[in-house]
Design a protein around this nucleic acid. Structure first.
Length: 200
DNA sequence: CTCTTGATCTTCT
DNA sequence: GAAGATCAAGAGC
């Protein structure tokens, strides 16, 4: 059984339908939700939205073998290789063919912390999941999990119970469409990958 | 704290 | 053949 340290109990399980609307609406509602993979994970405190109409998205130039999951129906997991080393995970949103997705950038660890520490070979809780590559390493997500449904095992996403305060900034690590303020964070969280300019 | 650099490989041109 | 939705370590302040 995973250890549970957070005093705030997660809410109801999200179904795939939750993701079948504007990627920006989904993003706002995901901050504060709890993501678990095989019972390991935590509270989503930082995400970025990508849409096929802007050049930073992997889907901008149309379907390819890599991004085919993005072009499928909403509510599925899109995993890609980053810089030849890391895995990064996304939630596909909107509608089939829309090819929009949300990059999961940081979690506040709450479930299975001992296992995450072992996988990351790192004790510091604040750094366990403070980046998209770190999350996949801590949760054990790889290319094998590309295309999994977000509302079936081994994935669980619990709705948040209260509406949090959200901060917003430009996205990290991109050169195209770098001015779009599509990075969202939980205000005041110490578990984000990088500070927000307007105070997180 | 910030800045720089190396690691490593898939993808698409 | 070049670029890339990253990370960790090291140098400098």
């Amino acid at each position: 059984m995973p250890e549970i340290r957070n005093s705030v109990a997660p809410g109801r399980l999200l179904k795939r339908k939750f993701f079948a609307r504007s990627v920006h609406d989904v993003a706002s509602d995901l901050i504060g939700a709890t993501l678990l993979f095989n019972g390991v994970g935590g509270i989503i405190v930082e995400i970025e939205a990508y849409h096929h109409t802007e050049p930073a998205a992997h889907s901008y130039n149309g379907p390819t073998p890599r991004n085919q999951v993005m072009f499928g129906p909403p509510g599925y997991l899109y995993v890609y290789r980053s810089y030849g080393i890391h895995w990064c995970m996304n939630f596909v949103c909107e509608a089939e063919g829309s090819a929009s997705a949300i990059l999961i950038r940081a979690l506040e660890p709450t479930h299975g912390i001992a296992l995450m520490r072992r996988r990351r070979m790192l004790h510091d809780e604040r750094s366990l999941c403070s980046g998209p590559g770190k999350i996949c390493a801590a949760l054990g997500v790889t290319r094998d999990h590309n295309g999994l449904a977000l509302d079936h095992a081994p994935i669980e996403i619990h709705a948040r119970r209260e509406v949090p305060q959200i901060v917003r900034d430009v996205r990290i690590g991109i050169t195209k469409a770098a001015d779009l303020p599509w990075r969202l964070g939980l205000k005041g969280s110490k578990f984000i990958s990088k500070p927000f300019r307007n105070g997180a």
